[in-house]
Write a protein that binds this DNA or RNA. Structure first.
Lengths: 149, 149
DNA sequence: CGTCATCCCATGCCTTTTCATGCAACCGGG
DNA sequence: CCCGGTTGCATGAAAAGGCATGGGATGACG
């Protein structure tokens, strides 16, 4: 009773949060490599994608959308502003809020990257049988909604 | 033609990698908070969970399993060794390899946390209708396998 | 109006990660 | 054997992130 080919599958291998993390990592890593080759970091891409098509988001809202903390976002915005990707403008009516919007250059890059992301996602879902992509999205949204509550 | 209740759903809201990242983040955040309250970081938990039930993993392998880079793992192992959670031993037959294993204390903490994780996962899946958890796991494994290739 | 609680973003300090590199240990072909 | 190529981990400087806190702007209430 020593030689087990697949004896006790480790706890972690069936642990749903771990599978989610692995899947998230695996699915994105290819695209992230492409980003890096282009000199853009993962977090910058998230900001660009979040702001794409938006007229401006508050710093805190943006941080939540990008799954990071507010001070991190403040600093990231600072760097991206230096690179001319985003700009801050004041919110008329509530001077506490700082709205972050894309510069034309940022918007151009965002559009380009978003297009690449679409293509990447298309490859991904094309490799999935049936309409698995649809059910996957539905299940993920369910998880997000339930956990957010 | 100004008031759109849900006009142009942003690209990102249907983007599968983003949904995965959000779901991963949402699902884990509650448990991560519990970890932090116990003085254990997320990365430490990953190492403990990965090593739980194992007789030792190489540093590089462990890093890949925990979705982090090798130098990060080397330093993390150093810290955890100082806390008496893990220990390094040499691999007989290949002195390049450093096997990382749990100390008794580390194993005890790992067992305890793993139990809590199981409970947390049970709550999570109990909230899911039908056998969604099963299909979810299958879909995620499919993504991981395809992307890993 | 004045005051206090609250909301939002910025900052500072310290920890952690990253990137590039160094270095030792194996491996294969002359 | 010896030697170039490869693998596996460690290290060091620089960038990024996390946590606690500061300070200005609002809003509610008396």
């Amino acid at each position: 009773m020593a030689c087990d080919p697949s004896p006790e599958p480790r706890f972690i291998d069936g642990y749903l949060p771990y599978l989610l993390a692995r899947a998230s990592h695996a699915v994105s890593s290819e695209f992230h490599a492409r980003l890096k080759a282009q000199g853009i970091g993962v977090v910058e891409w998230r900001v660009l994608a979040s702001l794409s098509g938006s007229s401006g988001e508050a710093v805190g809202t943006l941080a939540a959308a990008c799954l990071m903390q507010q001070p991190t976002m403040t600093k990231l915005i600072g760097r991206m502003a230096l690179e001319g990707l985003v700009e801050r403008h004041a919110e008329p009516g509530d001077r506490r809020i700082v709205r972050v919007g894309l510069t034309p250059r940022g918007a151009a890059i965002a559009a380009e990257l978003t297009e690449a992301a679409r293509a990447h996602e298309a490859e991904l879902t094309a490799a999935m049988p049936d309409d698995q992509a649809g059910t996957m999205r539905a299940l993920l949204r369910g998880l997000i909604d339930r956990s957010g509550a």
